[in-house]
Every structure is written in C-alpha cells, then in structure tokens.
Design a protein around this nucleic acid. Structure first.
Lengths: 407, 407
DNA sequence: CAAATAAGTCCTAAAAGCAAACAATATATC
DNA sequence: GATATATTGTTTGCTTTTAGGACTTATTTG
C-alpha cells in the first residue's frame, strides 16, 4: 500500500499500459528464457495476440532475439524460442578498492567474459582516471568479438550522491566530494554509473538470474572486509534514503563503549568484525592505526589467519570465533530492523564459513526477537563470484529491465 | 528502479490507466481541496476533458462531492469546488495498551469527532472483545449524525501477522498468537484492521493531511513509552519485511553488555530509553521486575519525573538527561541505517523536549556518519494528537487512497 | 493422408487518453 | 450598456491499446 506523492507523481499516458506490459514481458523472458510467445502469453495471462505484439516490439528494439525452434510440446507446431539479446553488447565493471582496482567484462546478463584484471589503485584521480580509461579501452580492444560496450559500472567503498555524480566520502580512499563519473566518461567515451559497493552488491543479487532465488524482494547484502558494507533491498528496490546514504549498518553499535571505529564513533559493528578487527584480536593489539607493523603483521591476512585456525592454532580459532559471534549479534540487529527474507554475506571471513556458521547462527538467535527471525536464510557469496564487480555490472545492466515509474 | 518480480506481477489491463489516474486525481483532491476540475487538470498535466471524466467517476462512487462555486480567479466562469466526501461516514480507532484501551471516532480524513474515551484493558479476550464491541456500538450510537462506520482500526503494542489476522506476540499484554480481528468484526458487524502500533503511527504521519509535510516518503516514527515502538516508511510505503516484523529498532543494542531487556536480550535501545528505564535510573534500582514497589514508585510516572526536573530536582534532571543522550545515540543508528528525511518522536518523554533537545541532538551528531545525517529533521508529536489512535484510523482510511498495484 | 493440436497472425470491439471545438459564465474595456 | 476576452466545464472525433475470437501455419499421431 503505497502513498501517491502529490508533489511527485506520474500520470498514466496512452503508452503507459504498453510500457508496463513490455517490461513484464522482458522480465519474464529474462527469467524463463528460452520461452515461446505462447508460453509468455500463458504466464502473463493475456491473449497470444497481445504477447506477440509485445514480443515484436522487443524484437524491433533488439532487446530480445528469436533463436532456434524448440521441441514440440505434444503434437503441433514447434515454438520459436525467445532470448534476451546479450550478443554483441557488453558491460564493464570496475571495483575501486583501497589497495587494488579490479576490472571485469560481462554480457548484459552479467555472464563473465574473459578474466578479471587488476592494478594498484592510485588515489590521485589525475593518475587513476587515465590509467583506468586506458585499461578499459585495452580490455575492450582485447575482446572485439563481444561487441559494443553499453556502459561502465563503478563501485567504491564509500558514499555516493543520489545522482551518482559525486563520491561524497570514501574514507579508505581518502576521497571527499570528488567526481569520478564525468572524467571517466569523458576519457572512455562510454556512459559511467557509480554506486556504493554495498548497494551495488545488493542490486546484483536482486538481479541475479539464478533459479534458486524465489522472489526475494527483501534481502540484505553484508560485505565484511576492511570495513563492513551493507546494501538493503526492500520491495525489489535498493534502499537509498533521503541522501542515498541508507544501509550503513556497519556503524550501528554493538557496544557504544567498544573499540574506536574508523568513522570516529566507538563500538560500531564494523569495529568488531572487520578484517582488521579480527587480526587485531589475534595479535592482541590495535592494527587500525598506521603505525609501523612488525614483519609478520604487515602482510598477514585474514585468509592466513583462517588457514592457521584450520591447522589447529587455538588462538587463531578463538579470534575467528569471536568475530563469528559479533557477526551474528550484528546480523540480529539487521534482522530485527529489516526482517529480510534472505541475507547474503561476502568477504574473506566467508572462507571460514563451515567453521563459524554454528557460532554465527547461535549468536544471531540470542538477539532476534522472533523464531522466524532466528532462522532467516543466510547465503554465502564466495569471493570467486566477484560480488562487487557483479554489482558494478548490475548498475549498467539492470535499468533496462526495471519496472516503469507509474502513479 | 524497482525489479519486477517474475513470480508476482500485475499486467496492465484495459482499465489500469484509468485506475492509476483516478487514484492520482483522488490524492490531488485530498491534498489540495477545495480544487476545481480545471486546476486538477493543470496539476495532472492532462486535458480538462480527461480530468472531468475522472472526476465524474469519483463523484459516481461518492468518494468526492461538489461543493459551492468558488470565486472567479480572473474573469470567466466560476469553478465548482471538489472535496473528499467525508460526510456521513466515519472510522473508529482503537488503541489497546497494557493498562488502558482507548477509542476515538474520526471522519475519513482523520479529523476527530467527539472525545477520546477509554477503559481498563482486560487481557482476557473473552472479556475484552465483548466490552470493546459494546463500547464501539455505544460511541457510534452517541454520534448518529456522523453516519455509517467504514471500519475499525486497532493498534496493539506487538507483532501482527502480514494479513492482520493474528497478533503473534504482544509481550506487555502477554498475548501469543491470538485472533482479535475476526471476533471483533463478528461482534460489531464492522470490518476490522489490526496492526502494530509503531507501523500504524508511521502510516498515520505519512497520510496526515498537513501542509507542512513536503513529500516525505522516507520517514520514521519512534514511540517511546513502556517500550520503544518504531515504524518505518520507505518510498511512501510502510516497511514490513518478510514477516511484517520489520522496524524493531527498539531491540537494536546500544551495548550488548547493557541492562537486561524485556525481550530477553541485553542492552537493547529500549532498555535504555523506555519510561521504566528512565524511572529505574532515577530510583537507582530495577523497576522492570514485577516485585512489589514502594508507595512512591508504584504510581510515579515519567511525567512526574519531568515535573520534578523542571522544578529543579537535579537527580531527576540527570535521569532524564541520560535518557536523552541514549535516545540520541539510538536515533543515530536509525539515521545511519535508513537515512530518513524526517523522524517523528512520540511518547511521554517528548513533554520534556525543550529540556532534552540539545542533548538528543548532540548525542545524535556523535554517531551519525554524515553531516546531513546529523541534521535530520526531528518532529515531536505531542500526546494530544493521539498518534496511535490516528494510526489505527489510518489503517482503515488510507487504503482507499493508495496507489494501485501495477507491474 | 486425415485428424488433432499448438504457435502465431489478423481483425473487430471496447476502453481510455489526446486534441480541439463548443457552451456557459464572469470580468474588463470602450 | 455593448462587446471583447478569459476561464470553466462538456462534448465530439481520433488514435492507441487491450480483449476476444477467427484464421493460417506447422507438426505430430493414428
């Protein structure tokens, strides 16, 4: 039950019905491809005539194409299968992180084309933008067969303004109010979309074409690495809030008297479960500050820690178990606040999931208000799936499939 | 940018455009009444002919009516003013609380008719329902002139299932999985809608017809009394989550090592800022447990405490200031998580708002991530406005004005 | 080879937005 | 006081779009 905003509404024009049904058809083809016109009509509960018209319109715009004929169902004419047209068009995803920047090319449905490449991030935009543009052109030139690039999606670990024009604040990159989109678009000649990485990851999961995802219009993506990034999906839409800064559950406290967080406050969830927090717990001292580390701590990662834990290092296991417990306690807040149908978790700590899952689940149940809250589905997204890069790609690919704005 | 759920969509039928524009027209009349057909057409950016047809349809359904002619604007024919038809139809709002149950009658726009009545709550449904039904019939009989009752809205301090059929858990009433709606509907012969009080309050603010509310499709209602109830509005819609239990920010922790909360966990926001928590702080001992209180503490309320604080009692002021600080710290979590355009606060503590506002605001700024987060508009809703009862009424009145489900 | 069945196309009717003309009414100006 | 002008609200023809059904095409089965 949505209220119509009397200051910002959209009246239905003559083409509105058509627009709505066209997008529904497009989404059904995407979800069920390959599919025939007749099946589409049945799914939509409209006459075959209407479905045919919608299909021919989508064909004209080259959003879909007719593939081979399918097998006859019983007897009778064989159906012509329809597919989303992801041929000869691609999308570039870019993930800018504090240490390295990653690039991936996919088709319009997010299927990976070629390998992920990366290079060291130079935080100076005057250096970064030209290098990024050069590498994007390079990777596109290397894959001429995949056709024209529809757009570049960029995710950053920080806040982005509602229009995507400016990165307002990215602490780990020490960026404040910088414009990445326009210079990069100018340098590449390709439209660029930028978004916070947590929101983009949530978007990517929402739009993922997996058969196992059953209508999860309410979900949360939690990315645990240097910080904790969270993206929230409500009613099939990414939660943005008034200034596009919603979703910062990483800075909701577990204990306001807890350790100091990079955001300036104390006891944020992030300050308990980030990789640095876990390592600090293991080494028994605060690693967040930029003081010179010892030979060992300088290069030691959470993955190394997990390896030690699996090898029997009790201290390592204890550090990880603590993180698991805090992870669960924080997830409980998330569940109490949002009651999502599913939680996705990404980040290095997930490689230890088999070790920590019972602890996470136990801590979660301690604080969730309801029984079904305690059993909320948790889905691990492994690093090999490149959730952030898929998020970046989704920024470009998803809008074409979105529901039209109406009423 | 909303995703179309391929398992739950609505195709546009022949009447869909009409339905959309009809609801837009209805909402614009509601927001701008009195208004002429010509002005409506200008607002909607359609031809007057279309607006006229929509209006005549709304007139046929008696959703609006034609009032007197307005003054001619410049020269030319005088406009006929249109109004929402709230004559001869009313709504009953019911607020069931642990100690007392309140009843109010309003018109379809939520304008109060007559006084608020109340009686002691008997938690036994077999007693409560007949008494409630009797009193509802009574109050309707007392106001025969206000016409037929369109529905009864009931709010309870607890969780309600998504269909509104059952109260799943209301701790302060010690109700678990009880059906209030159907017995009450049977006893009164009027349709009954039930919802959690926090969600209903948020709904009421969303639908409030006040000129000062400018397009706040993202807002939060925080009700501080025995517990902390929260209702969230996102994109003009109440946040429900998978099981209609979203919004329980009262049980997001400030410190997981904090005081025990009624929910069983420790350190919930509620356990810091509820009235009982404030009083416990003043008396220096835990009042949550049902042990016999002293003569003074038994009847002493937060309002009494505020009166003492205003009279110069330093200990009382300190207790209230503590609550204020914790209130601000919790609001910061809310802002970081949801980035609302506005926060509404209700409950007894708001009578001390002039005392505590700087402290609340200061604590809030300590933990909000962004500058604009720290300046989020906070709007106090005084008890005289009966936010919960208005919420109950909104449950009945709002659906008629809601946007149609499309795509 | 004929019957049955499914896919896809085409035609007509009803509904709704769009556009312009028309009637009614009020004010301004000469 | 007569005429011009502006505004409201209604009406009429036109176009687009969905609904429903008939028709054509293609394929399998008996």
């Amino acid at each position: 039950m949505r209220k119509i905003d009397p200051h910002d509404f959209k009246v239905a024009r003559r083409g509105t019905s058509r627009e709505i049904n066209r997008q529904i058809a497009l989404n059904l083809i995407r979800a069920h491809q390959p599919i025939s016109r007749a099946d589409l009509a049945r799914l939509m509960n409209v006459r075959r005539g209407v479905a045919s018209l919608l299909v021919s319109e989508l064909l004209d715009e080259a959003l879909i194409f007719e593939g081979a004929l399918g097998e006859a169902v019983g007897r009778g004419r064989r159906p012509t299968f329809l597919y989303i047209d992801s041929r000869q068009r691609c999308v570039v995803g870019v993930d800018i992180r504090a240490s390295r920047t990653y690039i991936m090319v996919t088709d319009l449905l997010g299927h990976q084309l070629g390998a992920v490449s990366s290079f060291q991030t130079n935080r100076d935009l005057d250096v970064l933008i030209p290098e990024l543009a050069r590498r994007i052109r390079q990777v596109l030139a290397d894959h001429k067969e995949i056709g024209a690039c529809e757009g570049v999606g960029v995710v950053v670990p920080g806040m982005v303004d509602p229009t995507g024009g400016r990165v307002l604040h990215a602490p780990t990159l020490s960026w404040r109010d910088v414009n990445v989109r326009d210079p990069l678009a100018a340098a590449t000649g390709i439209p660029v979309h930028i978004e916070n990485s947590g929101k983009a990851c949530a978007l990517a999961q929402l739009w993922a074409t997996r058969s196992d995802v059953v209508a999860s219009g309410n979900s949360v993506f939690v990315s645990v690495s240097d910080g904790v990034g969270v993206g929230v999906v409500v009613n099939g839409e990414v939660l943005r809030g008034r200034h596009n800064t919603a979703g910062e559950f990483g800075h909701v406290p577990l204990s306001i008297d807890g350790p100091r967080c990079s955001c300036g406050a104390t006891g944020c969830w992030e300050s308990y479960v980030s990789n640095i927090a876990t390592l600090s717990r293991y080494f028994g001292r605060d690693l967040t500050e930029a003081k010179p580390r010892g030979a060992e701590t300088a290069t030691f990662t959470v993955e190394d820690l997990i390896a030690r834990a699996r090898a029997g290092d009790a201290k390592a296991l204890a550090a990880i178990n603590s993180t698991a417990r805090y992870l669960g306690l924080g997830l409980a807040s998330l569940i109490n606040a949002l009651d999502p149908a599913r939680i996705y978790i990404g980040g290095e700590i997930t490689t230890a999931w088999s070790l920590i899952e019972p602890i996470v689940r136990g801590a979660l149940k301690e604080r969730t208000l309801t029984d079904f809250g305690g059993t909320t589905e948790i889905h691990v997204v492994p690093a090999e799936e490149h959730p952030r890069l898929r998020g970046a790609v989704a920024l470009v690919a998803a809008p074409a499939f979105a529901a039209p704005m109406v009423a």
